[in-house]
């Protein structure tokens, strides 16, 4: 059965992504017009570079939201795992490359994620409360048990990874240069892997299914507890990876400076059209929403908005974005019947 073109377009515009994309585009064009600096190569590279860590976090938060849960522990998880990894390697006087640090971080991330997963999936406790508690536990382990302090020197392999770049972009007018960090590949890899997982594996469809209706998922034969558990393990690993990358990019390990990122990350994901109640959302939208937040946080300075106004814009953006989707939800529930009727007509036409 072929659906008609107008109907397909209508369906696309019922989603959030096109609106986010249009807002994003409008913002970019506005900044470009006012500053002439936005589409300069070095600014684009700077934004890509700034997207890596929030982008990874956002992918993790997105997966959890999709399954109908919520995770506020990822900054603490990432901090703990990045700190533990760095500290361990420093103690061992590790001189090798980036691979081992990343593997260690992934392992720690998996264990910490399993801690969340245990309570959320096996005992079925509310995700918000568990991750709130685990966030506090992770912080406590890091600052108490590991007695964390800022590590100004990090292992050489991590230093080099942090400094390495894919290419360097130069602004032809100002002559400013920006490096595209190698870690951008990590972001792309994770994004592609998650995309394929969501689209082409039963595990991925299970995440959507659980988010849509957990009871139906159980009855359909999804192993719901296992899927959820694995999901939190996976999200722990993604967050850990982001933590290590951030440490590398900053060339030092600051135990607390990622804490408090969770709200803006979740806001970005929701702006990108992911339903906070689960089951709906696309990876593309998630990245778009995060990009929007990153641009607001990084590029408003280009049009002369002082950095101290950053939060005003982010807050306003979150409120506006969420009211648009709230309005859409309201309208769609009001016009469900009409939608149904118009759909019938479309189907009949074919």
């Amino acid at each position: 059965m072929q659906t008609s073109l107008p109907f397909t377009i209508k369906r696309i515009f019922r989603r959030n992504e096109p609106y986010v994309f249009l807002v994003l585009l409008a913002l970019c064009v506005l900044i470009e017009i006012r500053s002439g600096q936005f589409f300069s190569p070095n600014n684009l590279v700077d934004i890509s570079s700034a997207l890596v860590v929030p982008g990874l976090f956002a992918i993790g938060a997105f997966l959890v939201l999709l399954s109908g849960g919520i995770d506020v522990s990822f900054p603490a998880l990432a901090s703990l795992s990045a700190y533990a990894t760095t500290k361990l390697l420093l103690v061992m006087d590790y001189q090798g490359g980036i691979l081992i640090p990343i593997l260690i971080a992934l392992l720690i991330g998996a264990v910490l994620g399993a801690f969340n997963g245990l309570f959320i999936s096996i005992l079925n406790l509310p995700a918000l409360i568990v991750t709130l508690g685990s966030s506090s536990v992770f912080k406590g382990v890091m600052q108490g048990a590991l007695n964390s302090k800022q590590l100004t020197v990090i292992p050489i392999g991590m230093q080099e990874f942090g400094k390495s770049s894919l290419f360097t972009a130069t602004n032809s007018i100002s002559g400013l240069t920006s490096r595209m960090p190698t870690s951008f590949i990590a972001f792309i890899l994770v994004a592609v892997a998650v995309f394929f997982m969501l689209r082409f594996t039963m595990f991925g469809r299970g995440i959507y299914g659980i988010g849509g209706s957990e009871v139906s998922a159980i009855r359909a034969g999804f192993r719901v507890k296992r899927t959820k558990f694995m999901l939190y393990v996976m999200v722990g690993m993604i967050a850990s990876l982001a933590g290590v990358i951030r440490t590398c990019m900053m060339q030092q390990c600051h135990p607390t400076n990622m804490l408090g990122m969770e709200m803006n990350i979740i806001a970005g994901v929701v702006l990108g059209g992911t339903l906070i109640t689960g089951g709906r959302g696309t990876l593309f939208g998630c990245v778009l929403g995060t990009l929007l937040i990153v641009i607001v946080e990084n590029s408003l300075i280009l049009i002369g908005v002082p950095t101290s106004f950053k939060s005003v814009f982010t807050g306003a953006l979150i409120i506006l974005g969420t009211s648009v989707s709230a309005y859409q939800m309201m309208r769609s529930s009001h016009s469900q019947r009409e939608k149904l009727l118009s759909r019938r007509e479309v189907v009949n036409e074919n």
Binding site: R205, Y208, G209, G211, G212, S213, V215, S216, A217, R219, A220, G279, R280
Partner: peptide
């Protein structure tokens, strides 16, 4: 409730 997934 038919055990369907409304979002799929």
């Amino acid at each position: 409730d038919f055990s369907v997934f409304p979002n799929l």
